[in-house]
Amino acid sequence: MNGGVETALVIGAMSDIGRAVAHALAEDGYALQLAARDPARLERETRDIRVRTGGAVTVHRCDVLDEDGGVSLLDTLDPLPDVAVCVVGLLGDQAESQQNPDAAERVIRTNYIGPALLMGSLAERFEQRGSGVLVGISSVAGDRGRAANYVYGSAKAGFTAFLSGLRNRLATSGVHVVTVKPGFVRTRMTDGMDLPSWLTAEPEEVAAAVVKAIRRRRDVIYVRGIWRLIMLIIRAVPERMFKWIKWA
């Protein structure tokens, strides 16, 4: 804490979801630490946040594909944040991931190994301090592997399981873990895709849900409630049938 103001770290702050989360947290009164691969590009975001909210913002570099998995980010954080949100992710191209192991590895490292190790290291420090909230943006794609995106989906599944275990382990430590499964979101990642609007959230909606989940110490959230139901059904289909279904 610095003088009563709580600090929130957003990793992946250049993404549409990351930016919306950063704005919502700033409006909620947090001082911000924004991390991205190219911090110079964050200048535009920090100015925007400063003008809009007058809040404090610092900028940090983090690339989860670095040799250290991006964990050196933690040494640049002063103070240690009260809240950390990891938005890092890469949809990749399923066909490419099938043919090219390097591409698949990139997707897996960006969605699973990187974020998991980051959240894990932050958890250690939060646990020592005895407080903090960790938020991981995972995906409904991790709820069941589908032909269309299982490389991405399996990595998200790994991240979801990691967060679940972390939450379980830290339950009595004062550290809380939130898993976010946003469903479809209208962002750069989905630009040009033809998504059904009733299933598609705006980044601001995701951000509002994240802030609420932090406040209420929720465990797992689906941004639009309908997704919880959809995934319940999708998970319930027996594999014997599931394998024949061609998902759009």
Binding site: E45, D48, V51, R52
Partner: peptide, 12 residues
């Protein structure tokens, strides 16, 4: 993005 605001003059 908003870029600057001068609270003296009101220039945005």
């Amino acid at each position: 993005r908003m870029q600057a605001f001068d609270a003296e003059t009101g220039r945005l």
